[in-house]
Simulated scan of single mutants.
Amino acid sequence: SRSGTFPQITFKDNVANVEIDLPSLKEQQHIVQKINTINEKIVLNNQINDNLVA
């Protein structure tokens, strides 16, 4: 039912067996902590900037 120049990609045949290397859970948690710290600083800077504009 599909037409075009690209072949159909099926999960079972093309993607199901692809292995993805991920960092350990401990390292993932460490990365998340770093990102959360950066996000908190962004929120704080946005609040400071909002006060400067007002």
Rank of each mutant, 00 (worst) to 15 (best):
N46L: 13
Q33L: 06
L25P: 06
I20Q: 07
S1E: 08
L22M: 14
P7D: 07
L44Q: 14
V53C: 02
K41R: 14
Q28Y: 01
N39C: 07
L25Q: 11
I20R: 06
I35F: 07
L25E: 15
F6V: 13
T10S: 13
H30K: 15
Q33W: 00
Q28D: 00
I48H: 02
L44Y: 12
I20S: 03
I38T: 12
K34Y: 02
D50R: 11
N17V: 01
T5H: 09
K41G: 08
N49K: 15
N46D: 14
K34R: 15
T10I: 09
I42C: 04
K12M: 08
D13G: 11
T10L: 13
N49W: 11
T5Q: 07
E40Y: 02
L52T: 02
S3W: 08
P23T: 04
Q29N: 12
N45M: 11
E40C: 02
R2I: 04
T37M: 06
K12Q: 15
T37F: 09
T37H: 13
N46K: 13
G4K: 01
E19R: 10
N39P: 00
L52F: 11
A54V: 12
D50V: 01
K26H: 04
E27Q: 14
T5A: 10
G4Y: 02
T10F: 09
D21R: 07
P23N: 04
A16H: 09
R2A: 05
N14A: 06
I48N: 03
L22W: 12
Q8S: 05
Q8M: 09
H30G: 08
Q8P: 00
N39H: 08
V43P: 00
S24Y: 00
R2N: 09
V18P: 01
I20W: 09
L44V: 04
D50E: 14
I20E: 05
S3I: 11
I20N: 04
I42E: 04
I42R: 04
L44E: 15
S24D: 05
P7K: 10
I42M: 06
K41Y: 05
D13P: 01
N14Y: 07
A54N: 13
I48L: 12
N39Y: 07
I42Y: 06
F6D: 12
G4C: 02
K41P: 00
K26A: 15
V53W: 05
I9V: 15
I31P: 00
N49T: 10
L44P: 00
Q33N: 08
T37G: 14
I20K: 08
N14W: 04
I48W: 02
N49L: 15
E19H: 08
Q28F: 03
T37L: 06
D13W: 01
V32Y: 08
S1P: 05
N51F: 10
Q47F: 03
I31K: 14
Q8R: 11
N36V: 02
E19N: 10
P23D: 07
K41E: 12
P23G: 03
V15T: 10
T5M: 08
I42H: 02
N39K: 13
N45L: 12
E40Q: 12
V43E: 13
H30F: 07
F6C: 10
S3F: 12
K34P: 00
P7E: 09
R2P: 00
D13F: 01
G4L: 02
F6W: 08
P7N: 07
V15P: 01
